[in-house]
Amino acid sequence: MEQAQASKPRKGKHIDVIHHEMYDRLEPGTDMVSLEAYLRRLSERSMKNRAAFQEFGLRGVRMTRHALERWNTRVGPQAGASELEARLTILGCELGRIHLLSKNVGIIDDDIVFIYEIEGTQLVCITFYGRKSLRPALFDMRHLLRFNGREDDEADIQLEPEELAGQLFPPLPYKLLMYRGTRSRYQLEVYDNTETPIFRLVESVQEDARASVFRQDKGAFKPSKSTITALSYLGYKSPGHRGRSRELERDAQHDNNQSNDERNFEPTAGL
Rank of each mutant, 00 (worst) to 15 (best):
Y174W: 12
E44F: 09
D251F: 12
E154M: 10
E151R: 09
L88F: 12
R263N: 12
F139N: 11
S102D: 02
D109G: 01
K103P: 05
D31F: 06
R41P: 01
T196D: 05
I108L: 06
S259F: 11
A51M: 09
L177T: 10
Q54E: 14
I118D: 00
V202P: 06
V213Y: 01
D192G: 10
D109I: 02
L201A: 04
P170L: 05
R180L: 09
N193P: 12
S43D: 14
V124R: 04
V113I: 09
G96T: 04
P77E: 04
L188C: 08
L138V: 03
E189W: 05
K132Q: 07
R65S: 14
M22W: 05
F169R: 06
G106V: 07
A269I: 15
Y191P: 09
S46N: 14
I98Y: 00
M178S: 12
G130L: 01
L134S: 07
E94Y: 09
T64A: 04
H241R: 12
P28N: 03
M47H: 12
V205N: 06
L39I: 09
V213N: 01
R183Y: 06
A79L: 10
F56N: 09
K225Q: 11
I107A: 00
E44T: 14
A79R: 13
R10W: 05
P197Y: 02
P9H: 00
V205Q: 05
N257V: 11
A137N: 04
G181A: 01
E207Q: 13
T196Y: 02
Q187D: 02
V105Q: 02
D24F: 14
R200D: 00
I126K: 10
L26P: 11
R185M: 08
E94M: 09
R59H: 14
D208I: 14
N72M: 03
S46L: 04
R244Y: 03
H143G: 04
G181P: 03
R244M: 11
